[in-house]
Design a protein around this nucleic acid. Structure first.
Lengths: 139, 139
DNA sequence: CTGCTTGCAAAGGCTTTGCAGAACA
DNA sequence: TGTTCTGCAAAGCCTTTGCAAGCAG
């Protein structure tokens, strides 16, 4: 998926994921897809409400992020119990997390290779594999 | 690390991790290390307070789980924003998470092999690699 | 019209904090 | 005896919910 540049592209992107493009959803999507990034609900709220002539409530931000996640537009990344990020990078990738600074970086999925993935338990199939590489200062 | 069977072994385990063995910490440790398992703070609280002659407060459970985590006795496993588990399995391993049932299983670290781990950013070193394999019902 | 969305405020759930009393070395 | 730990209750934080008003098709 390439990053939408225009309003029309944003609308199309929402439609492709079965999401009706309302004004608020457009504004939230505009913030999320401005670039590949990791944002918390709070950051999304702030960024949207800094935009000219835009306003969304907290409840709508939460609803919309949940909706986008269910529809596959964004991904939740949970790094520790106090940080949930919504990740607008739309291709398969993993994360490098700096325990010291809290910084989160992407790592393309095809840069690493996992051997020996187990057979999933009977009646289940693998839905996804997530890798988090924790790094800390070398000191 | 092998699982402590006796009180003396529990005490030694705490000492080895630089944790003073108080009564409450012993009771919490007894619950955690009864077997390899994944427990939430709430579950730990309940289990301890079901034991004969044991009582710990909620605050102490949180304090103690935080302390044990910092000291490396247990590991936090974060699967989604509403579930934090404390994992008493003490050897390197990854997790298989059933999205549908919420069940969490262990996968020995040496069963899989990750190729192409990136060079960590300058000034940092890799602290750990965590893999979560999400599975869901086959159809 | 009719159903979906939104915003507000309140409720909820989990975790942390402050502080006084208790336990420990 | 000095320090550390514990328990209680309150506070905090983030997220969800209920409901009435608003919007879209």
């Amino acid at each position: 998926m390439s990053y939408p540049q225009t309003n029309a592209e944003l609308i199309q992107m929402l439609h492709e994921h079965d999401v009706k493009p309302t004004q608020q959803r457009m504004q939230i999507a505009a913030v999320l897809f401005a670039r590949p990034q990791h944002l918390s609900a709070d950051q999304v709220l702030d960024l949207v409400n800094k935009m000219e002539g835009a306003y969304v409530s907290k409840a709508t931000v939460y609803n919309t992020l949940g909706l986008f996640t269910r529809k596959g537009l964004i991904r939740e990344v949970i790094i520790n119990s106090t940080k949930v990020f919504y990740d607008s990078t739309t291709h398969p990738h993993h994360h490098i997390y700096n325990v010291d600074t809290g910084m989160l970086m992407d790592l393309d999925a095809d840069e690493i290779n996992i051997e020996g993935l187990p057979t999933p338990p009977a009646g289940t199939r693998i839905d996804g594999v997530e890798v988090v590489i924790r790094v800390r200062p070398a000191n």
